[in-house]
C-alpha cells in the first residue's frame, strides 16, 4: 500500500501535499539522494520499491487495525492519575481584603438595591477529598439573616401561647385548618409539618426559636456557602456572624475523623458584587492602598494633578 502513493522515503513527505515545497523535496540534494543512481528521474519512487519501512504482517495473515493501534497508543500516553481531591490553588500572592474594605466595595456595587433583599454571601473553600463525608449543619447566627420566615403552629392551650411568644405568626387548630382550606392563608405545601423534618414536636416554642434565624449550610464541591448577612448589617454585626460561623465550621471539620479537611480560602461576596478574598483582619492597617480617604489625602492628590481643580471649580 505504501508503494501506491508517491512518497519521499528519505524525509517521509508526500510531495503532492506540499505544493510549495515540492520542487525542493524532489531535487536530489540530500546525502541519501546522492547515493542513488543518477539515471532515476523520480528518486522517491525508486526508493520505495527498493525497501519497505512498513513492518511485516503477522504470521496469521490477519489484517491489523492500525487506527485501533494508534488510538490505544494515544490513550496510553494521555492516561492521567485520577484526582482524589478537589482542586485548590495557591493564593498566597494574591491580594486579600480586610472585612471593612471588602464591605465598602460591596456596598458601592450594591448601591440602590434593597438592603433587606441583597445578602452577603460567604464561601469557604475546603481542602478535601472528592469522596467521603461532607459537612452539613445548621447554625444560629447572632443576627439572623432570613427574617421573613413566617411560622404557623397547630397547638392549643399553654403551648399555643408559648408558640405565639416564640414568634409564630398563626396559631390555632381547626379554625386555622379551615382558613387554609379556603385559601385565606397563603400556605406553602412544601414546608408542611412532617415528623421526618422534625417539625412535629411536643414543645413548639423551642423549635420555633431555632427555626427563626437559623440557617443551614452544607459542603458542595469542596465549598461551603452560606448567606451570612443582609446588606443593611453594620460591620460589627457581620463580623460577629462570620466569627460564629467560622468557629462552628472549624468544629464541624474537626469532628470528621480519618479525613483531612482544612480551610483553604474564605471569600466574601454579595448578591450583585464581585467576590473578595478575606485576609482575616477586621480593619486594614498600614497598607498604602487602604489609606482612610480624608479630605487631606484628596487635596494632596488633586494638587499633584494640578489641572482638574480649575476645570471643575
Amino acid at each position: 500500500m505504501a508503494s501506491s502513493i508517491s512518497v519521499c522515503r528519505a524525509c517521509l513527505t508526500r510531495p503532492s501535499t506540499l505544493i510549495g515545497r515540492a520542487p525542493r523535496l524532489l531535487r536530489p540534494t540530500s546525502d541519501i539522494h546522492r547515493l542513488l543512481p543518477t539515471t532515476s528521474t523520480v528518486p522517491s519512487l525508486i526508493l520505495a520499491s527498493a525497501f519497505s519501512t512498513t513492518p511485516s504482517l503477522p504470521a496469521g495473515g490477519g489484517a491489523v487495525n492500525r487506527a485501533k493501534l494508534k488510538s490505544s497508543k494515544l490513550k496510553q500516553t494521555k492516561k492521567k492519575k485520577p484526582k482524589t481531591h478537589f482542586k485548590i490553588w495557591n493564593h498566597a500572592e494574591f491580594p486579600k481584603y480586610a472585612l471593612t474594605d471588602a464591605m465598602r466595595y460591596i456596598r458601592a456595587f450594591e448601591v440602590g438595591n434593597d438592603v433587606r433583599q441583597a445578602k452577603y454571601d460567604l464561601a469557604v473553600k475546603i481542602y478535601t477529598q472528592k469522596n467521603g463525608p461532607t459537612v452539613k449543619n445548621r447554625i444560629q447566627l447572632p443576627k439572623a439573616v432570613n427574617t421573613d420566615i413566617r411560622i404557623c403552629v397547630f397547638a392549643e392551650g399553654k403551648k399555643a401561647d408559648a408558640a405565639r411568644e416564640a414568634g409564630a405568626v398563626v396559631v390555632g387548630t381547626k379554625d386555622v385548618w379551615e382558613q387554609i382550606k379556603e385559601g385565606v392563608i397563603n400556605f406553602d405545601r412544601r414546608s408542611h409539618a412532617v415528623p421526618r423534618t422534625g417539625t412535629v414536636v411536643t414543645n413548639p416554642a423551642a423549635i420555633i426559636s431555632a427555626m427563626i434565624g437559623a440557617s443551614e449550610y452544607r459542603e458542595r464541591q469542596g465549598v461551603v456557602r452560606i448567606a451570612i448577612g443582609q446588606l443593611g448589617f453594620s460591620t460589627e454585626e457581620l463580623r460577629d456572624n462570620i466569627k460564629v460561623f467560622m468557629d462552628q465550621l472549624a468544629k464541624d471539620l474537626a469532628r470528621i475523623e480519618d479525613f483531612d479537611k482544612r480551610i483553604n480560602e474564605v471569600v466574601l461576596s454579595s448578591t450583585h458584587s464581585p467576590a473578595f478574598s478575606l485576609s482575616g483582619e477586621f480593619r486594614n492597617i498600614g497598607r498604602e492602598e487602604d489609606l482612610e480617604i480624608t479630605t487631606e489625602v484628596v487635596e494632596g492628590a488633586v494638587a499633584a494633578e494640578g489641572a482638574p481643580v480649575a476645570a471643575v471649580a
Binding site: 491580594p95 464561601a123 464541591q221 465549598v223 471569600v267 464581585p274 467576590a275 478574598s277
Partner: peptide, 12 residues
C-alpha cells in the same frame, strides 16, 4: 469556585 487568577484579573 473559580481560580484566584481568573477572579483577580477582572476584579482589579
Amino acid at each position: 469556585m473559580p481560580s484566584p487568577t481568573s477572579r483577580l484579573r477582572w476584579l482589579r
